[in-house]
Amino acid sequence: MDVTKLLSIALGAILINNFILVQFLGCCPFLGVSKKMDTAIGMGFAVIFVMGLASGICYFVNELLVALGLGFMQTVAFILVIAALVQFVEMFLQKMVPSLYEALGVYLPLITTNCAVLGVALLNVQNEYNFIESVVYGVTGGIGFLLAIVLFASIRERLDMVSSPPKCFRGFPIALITAGLMALAFGGFSGLQVW
């Protein structure tokens, strides 16, 4: 097992090619659920979980599709797998860990349409990762998402308290500009060469 490769995939997914701030995958929940810290954290962990599971399962689905010569059905198959997976996770949590289910609430079904999840499945195929690399990429991609959304939520909470931007910038535009400045900071990692 090539540990350095796994480490470089992990570091790449968390910092250098952060899913939200560099690759623009998963912006909708990033902007939508980052008003409060608790929900941001809940969403972050749910995304880590689903992204890890989805990349593992989609790896086998893709193997099956390729074996059957149905590579072009990738997108349809992946989105169905993800939708079913999210539904399954929802039912499982509702039964086994009701407290977590309550905390995640409406954000759980919303993960289906989070493009980071479908994105990670497609990128795994594009980068020709094997099973372990895929799962590592999925989980660390989710950790990158958690990092970005938690940082962003803490900035936004403070922003609401202290600042008063011009009227037309209130709400969404100022959030986008804040995210832009964060992306600038994450851009600083892009020169980082690992192993």
Partner: peptide, 25 residues
């Protein structure tokens, strides 16, 4: 160069939405 990088995407869209809100207002 910054505007072609990811930063530019966030900034341009933010300003664009602000302009639209200003016009609506």
């Amino acid at each position: 160069q910054m505007l072609v990088l990811p930063v530019g995407g966030f900034l341009t869209l933010g300003v664009l939405i602000a302009v639209v809100q200003w016009m609506q207002d």
